[in-house]
Design a protein around this nucleic acid. Structure first.
Lengths: 360, 360
DNA sequence: TCCGTGCACGCAACCGGTTGCAGGCCCTGG
DNA sequence: CCAGGGCCTGCAACCGGTTGCGTGCACGGA
């Protein structure tokens, strides 16, 4: 008895077609290519569809067109405050274009990242991989299957958006040199991180250019605790200024220093990177600012452009950075050491409101 | 001339079938229901498929089975540090089950959340909505189309995971009362937030139970800047203790107080909520701890259970919370007010390391 | 030797849209 | 009045797996 057709949860194109008295093709066109139809027909079909609560089935559409209207975003650690703004920016850009975004968290593991990219490749139009920890060759293999856009990873032939912290780092070193520092430290991040390599190189170059001695301390994972744990090494190293891989590490260092009774910036100057929590530390952190939200947005827009016309092959966007001087940098310690730490905040420097901006 | 078949980018089931000398059905079964096939056949097909680099097309599979192997997670603001750990937990749980997760950021807007849920409904098996700002009726409408699990939103009939901050808040108020505070403030969060309502109610109840006067100050958006902006109101209100909607607001308050030269906890005690940045503030923030990562994980596991057997209708998981006393709470100000702010950190209380834990 | 039984696999319809192609209709120009 | 040309719309194949049903075959029992 096929007389009573059970109406599914959500109606299909056929039911709309029947209700509207047209063919399925017409319903389809009413949604995807309305300019091919008589305006009155479009209106009629849309009305019926609206009444029935019809929504095109994305799987069916994806199957026949290959357009998924989705893309994937892979990050090493969503809990690292560097990434949420980036995710947000990417999200908004994708949204405007009607795309949905998958999120993947590789947990800083290249192996997991590889798995994620492979899994996503089958169900998205393109992938944005931020701060990829993968070997270049592996990234290329994935990029070979699906369009990939990188953020903060510089691989020739793959479209990429780079936050050029080198300029900001250079300004940071100059800032320290100007304040009379002679011996400084770089607390490094993940070894497979392009950003880390870039920053390390920039600081080496800038230090030797300014005649500063440079000590490197490895933090590996860029976490708060990792920053805290580096403090003893830092104090033992006899430096008067520190540049940290990122703000999170810098924040950990600040906390460690506070616990150790070392006053910032009187006894030690600290500079962060990314400006991601910098305004909320105490004292407010001098840092290298990067518009991470823009990086996310750009990456998605670039990806969409690649999807549109595949001749954008070797794009390479560079976002510049600036040094933002807040309150964790001051004159080198030998100068400050004659006085104790009388004034903790705002002492000796006329720079609390109105942030001063250096940089390229 | 149909002799030269262009091999597509990724091979289809037909090509594998041809290469293996079996039917498409057999290839399909080799992947989805191998127990129906002779072991040698399975092995053979898998080998061929592996060599060709075959991957089942998810869109095609989704179309014929209705199983998408995806789910969506919607949050009001990924940049709010409350959510990244939750996202992470959700992500991991989904991953273990072979699901990919869409992320949506509603930007605290009910309208956008509505759009997101609608868009996701068509392409996922289920949805986790965290801290939904939607009207209950609207949520129900969505839940009617697709299984929905809520986090921190209590709607009867819809499976939900709740972080019971009431218990922690109650302990917080008791803690303040014990320290001699008589008049305290609650800095509230988003009005449509269930958590905010829950916290406000808990603090009202606890205050009157302890005989404390309660003042409420509205922060609306739970941001750092919003916290900073509430400081003048707080100082004008004549309270000696403050409970903030969340850690982010509390952090802003701390910063605002520092700028205003008010010492914490000597002149004013501050308590946060969620324990999400609390360990990184200065002084370290006394707060109500919630395992947000577990909430995310639970929500996904619950969703998967709903998908498995749809008889879990009215599940309601409650995660308890605890008060973690760090360094922003101390004796009521009238005691401290006789002396100015001589000792900024660690004065008057023997409680820096070894955190004390109260709670349900 | 013949038939019943069950395993392993193929056939073909189906999921729900999309799109090249063809055909009907109407309008215009000769 | 007829031919030609557009404009709309329908037909039907197709995207790539999945799955109910049926069949061929081997094997065991009578």
């Amino acid at each position: 008895m096929p007389e009573t057709e059970a109406p599914r949860g959500t109606p299909t194109i056929r039911e709309v077609a029947d209700a509207a008295g047209v063919s399925r093709a017409t319903v389809s066109r009413a949604f995807s290519r309305p300019e091919l139809l008589k305006p009155s027909t479009v209106e009629h079909v849309q009305a019926i569809a609206g009444r029935l609560g019809y929504t095109p089935n994305v799987a069916a559409r994806a199957l026949s067109t290959g357009r998924y209207a989705t893309l994937a975003l892979v990050v090493p650690d969503i809990a690292n405050p560097f990434f949420p703004p980036l995710v947000r920016g990417a999200q908004q850009a994708a949204d405007q274009a009607g795309y949905c975004v998958f999120l993947g968290d590789s947990d800083e593991s290249p192996a997991r990242e590889d798995v994620l990219l492979g899994r996503f490749a089958g169900q998205v139009e393109g992938i944005v991989s931020a701060s990829s920890r993968l070997a270049a060759q592996v990234v290329r293999r994935h990029a070979d299957r699906r369009p990939v856009v990188l953020v903060n990873r510089d691989i020739k032939g793959i479209p990429r958006v780079l936050i050029d912290t080198a300029s900001g780092i250079t300004a940071a070193v100059a800032h320290l040199a100007e304040l009379g520092h002679r011996r400084i430290a770089y607390v490094s991040g993940p070894q497979t991180s392009w950003s880390n390599q870039q920053r390390r190189r920039a600081i080496q170059r800038a230090s030797s250019a300014s005649g500063l001695e440079l000590v490197t301390v490895a933090a590996r994972r860029p976490t708060y605790d990792s920053g805290v744990a580096r403090v003893l090494d830092l104090l033992a190293s006899g430096v008067t200024g520190v540049v940290a891989f990122d703000d999170v590490v810098a924040q950990g260092i600040l906390a460690g220093l506070a616990t150790a009774g070392v006053s910032v910036p009187d006894q030690l100057s600290v500079i962060g990177c990314d400006d991601v929590v910098a305004a909320t530390t105490s004292p407010p952190l001098t840092t290298v600012s990067a518009r991470t939200d823009e990086a996310g947005r750009f990456a998605v827009e670039l990806l969409l452009r690649v999807l549109g016309s595949s001749d954008v092959r070797d794009a390479r966007y560079v976002l510049d950075t600036r040094l933002i001087v807040r309150a964790t940098t001051g004159p080198a310690a030998k100068i400050a050491s004659r006085s104790a730490n009388r004034t903790t905040s705002g002492g000796g420097r006329a720079m609390q409101a109105g942030r001063k901006i250096f940089g390229s």
